[in-house]
Structures are given as C-alpha cells and as structure tokens.
Design a protein around this nucleic acid. Structure first.
Lengths: 236, 236
DNA sequence: TTTAAAAATTGCAAAAAATCACTTTTTATC
DNA sequence: GATAAAAAGTGATTTTTTGCAATTTTTAAA
C-alpha cells in the first residue's frame, strides 16, 4: 500500500536524505577515509543539546531520535533519522552548539566525521554545498509543516500522522508483502506526538477497536492505512 | 532593558539575518542591479504556499508574516521577518514550491530577485553559499525550538514568549528610552501563539492587571519584561 | 465630529487534554 | 518456564483550552 496521492508525502521527510550518496568518487573517498565507525546500543546518547559541536554523524545502520529536553525533563522528539542519513551538521554549519540531542532507537552503527574534516570536504567539494543547501531548505519546509500540525491538530490526529510517518520509516528492509511493524516505546511515541503516554494508550486502543491497527506486544501494525489517513485529516 | 542573560536569545531569530549585508562589492552590485522594487500596502500577500517559486524577496522596509493556512482557513504564523531580511529562498534552494505564504504586517518596500538571477549570483559568489548554509542552519535551530515550545508550553507561556520576541522585532528604529510599541492585531497575535483571539484577550487582560503590559488602543507596551520572562518559563 | 464597520473583550458552557492512582501486560533475566 | 522489573493500559478527576454569543471599544471613512 503506497501513500502516493493519498498523503502529502513531500511535507514529511519520509526518505533518507542522501547527502553523501553519489558524491564524486574522490570526495566520497576523502570523507570515508576520515570516518570513525562506532557501534551504539539501543538507547545510547550520540550527542546532547547544548554541547560544543565536535563533528557530524553518518547513520550506517539503525534509527536515531532527535529531541529536546524541557525543564521538567520530558523529551520532545522532533525527528526520527534513518540509516543513510547525516545528523549533527546544522550545528557545524551554523557555528553554534548542537540545537538538539540525538539517541539511538535501536542498535546502530554510526560513523563520526570531525568538524575539521567535514568543513574541509565542504570547501573542496563542488556538489556538497549545493546539496546541503537543498537538504536544509527541504528540512525547513518539513519543520514548518510540523509546527502547523502541532498547533492546529488534535492529539488523535497527530497520533495518526505520526503512525503514518513511522510506518514509512520502518518500511525499509521489509520484503514485499511483509508486515510493517512499528517498534517504538509508548513513551517515545508520546514524545513524538507531544502528549502523555496515557493519551497514546487510549487512542491506540480506540484505533485497535476500529480495526485500524493491530498490536503484537509493543509493536504496532497498521492494517488500514486509508482509515488512518482519514483520521489524520491530511488526506489529499 | 536588554534581554541578554535573561532570555535564551540564540534560540530565537531576534535579529535580521544579514545574508546580503557586507557581500563583496561586485556580488552585491550584481544582485542590486537585478532587483525589482515594489511597495506593498499593509496586509498584501507577497507569495502563497504551494505556488511555483519565481524568486526571492528582500525586505527593504517593514515587517512581513510567514504563515500556513489550514483546512479551516485559519492561519498559523511561523515567523515575523523584519527589514533587512530575505524571504522565499528556501523554495528556490529546495527546488520545491513555496512551503508557506508571506504577507505584509505593515506598509512595506520589498525588492524582488528572480530565481535565475539568485541562482546565478549563488553560483558566482564565493561567500553566498557558505552564508546561506549558516543562516539556514540557524533557522533550523530556531524552528526546533519553536516546536518544543508549542508542544510543551501552555497558551499563557507561549503568549509571554511571543510578546518578548515581538518586542525585539519592534525595537528597531526606536530612539533610546522611547517606548517600544508592539503593533499587531489580536488575530495575528493569536495565530502566532497558536490559539484563538479570545484566549489572547483574556491573558492580555490578566497581564495588564498584573502591571506587566499596558495597552494603547491596539498597541501593546511591555512595562515589566522581567515578570514576563518569568511567566514565559524561559528565564535563564 | 459623527457614524458605521471592524476589532477586541467578556462571560459562560462544552470539549479536549493532562494528571493521578491503580491494574494488567510485556519484557528481560535467571 | 518462573519471576521481578519495566512498560503499557484503564478509570476517575481536574485543569486547560476552545467555542459561542453578546457587548464594548477602536478604527477608519464620511
């Protein structure tokens, strides 16, 4: 079941932004030779909001949540980055500290590129600046969309949207016809939607009774995407 | 009364981003010679969300709101751009349609630069790409902050934050010691905070009774910034 | 200055969301 | 498989926010 034509895909960062993909051979090689690969366990923090930015991270395997922590200690998850994506570069380019924190949602393999190597690659490259400008501008549009959603839509609608987006993130690597399982904790889900765990549980129960989703332990499977799009209020 | 040290200024686009300021002489000249200046009355739409992006706009005089319109027709104002700022370039760089609409908040003078001229300047320039990357990355951090605020803070806190930010936007051109008057309609204010006009009126009355603001017709003057920072919950 | 239209304010009722306390289910470990 | 700990789910209550209707104030035009 494809979302094309049913849901405004462009407004969401569904697909990994391929900043490093198909770079000229030598530029890609230069970056690769300066990468420091590291394995992270589920739940490990990659960098923290407010820390001096030491470099950027390339997610080779796994999913990463980007979030901010508020006064009360609760998280607001802004984005879920998938394998193939680059994170942490905003801080380097803005010459500021990391604006958000990043932590793994599952076991990950992540490569580190130091600030110096990244900036040096940027300077040498013929395509990297233009590609970063494009990606950043697209991310800007996605964030604007998120702000509108969060102010103008109910918790139920936001949960529906979040599930639709997450389904795409968890699609990767599934064989055709296989069930897509969304595997995030209720707490993370609540922090993506911007509400409490209790509300999430309540609405998930409602969705389950309406035959829109099924749960298998903690995992969620969307069985009726069209109905969920209807609830989301984003249908096109 | 300065906010430095009292309020996390870095997280908000307080100052006009000076993308075009202090460009190398020839590059600035090239852009200027290709600018088409136009006067807009208060309330005029500059471009609409979803329109094919024809170029970028340089605000020479006045303030501009950037917003999205939802299903019900209500606006969500994402950002208030001040004179000196450039708008509309995200769409060009992302190679997409305008992600939001722009309309003037007061009488404005705005110069248009066509897509072709902007991209051509970008290609020729030595500093423009790097400067745009910096600005975009900073804007990204600001938007992330906005999302956290909007999900984790009450309407009252958000109104307080909005007033503090607007005060800085309206500071420009005020002689030292002069009163800073925030001059936006209750409707626009509601659309910035993400609530209804009625709530705005209610909390403004409360602020007035607490001696935090005074109103002069439609205009708002903040008389006790420190108290307002306290209410905002953003105090540092 | 007068006056009509638009904008802002206020009170009240309804709806949505958050919070707390408690139960049940799931997960991870032995 | 048993078991303890963690996570998820449920119900009741309170708080926040919304939405409507009516009134007052402000603005802009004659």
């Amino acid at each position: 079941m494809s979302l094309a034509g049913l849901f405004p895909i462009d407004k969401w960062n569904f697909k990994s932004q391929s900043i490093l993909n198909n770079l000229p051979e030598d530029e890609y090689g230069y970056l690769c030779s300066n990468m420091l690969e590291h394995r992270y366990n589920k739940g490990e923090v990659i960098f923290r909001e407010g820390a001096v930015a030491s470099g950027i991270f390339f997610i080779k395997k796994g999913k990463v949540k980007k979030y901010q922590v508020d006064r009360t200690g609760s998280e607001q998850i802004i984005y879920v980055a998938n394998s193939g994506e680059l994170i942490g570069y905003h801080a380097i380019l803005a010459e500021e500290r990391y604006p958000d924190s990043a932590a793994t949602l599952e076991d990950c393999t992540i490569a580190f590129i130091s600030k110096e190597d990244f900036l040096s690659a940027l300077e040498k490259s013929t395509v990297l600046p233009r590609r970063l400008l494009k990606t950043l501008s697209h991310e800007f549009a996605v964030l604007i969309n998120s702000i509108s959603i969060v102010t103008q839509r109910s918790v139920k609608e936001r949960l529906a949207i979040t599930l639709i987006v997450l389904r795409e993130k968890f699609k990767e690597g599934i064989t055709a016809g296989g069930e897509i399982m969304i595997n995030v904790s209720r707490s993370d889900l609540a922090n993506m939607v911007g509400t409490g765990e209790e509300n999430i549980a309540r609405f998930l129960t409602e969705f389950k009774l309406s035959g829109i989703i099924s749960t298998h332990g903690r995992k969620i499977c969307i069985t009726d995407v069209k109905k969920l799009i209807g609830i989301s209020g984003c249908g096109t």
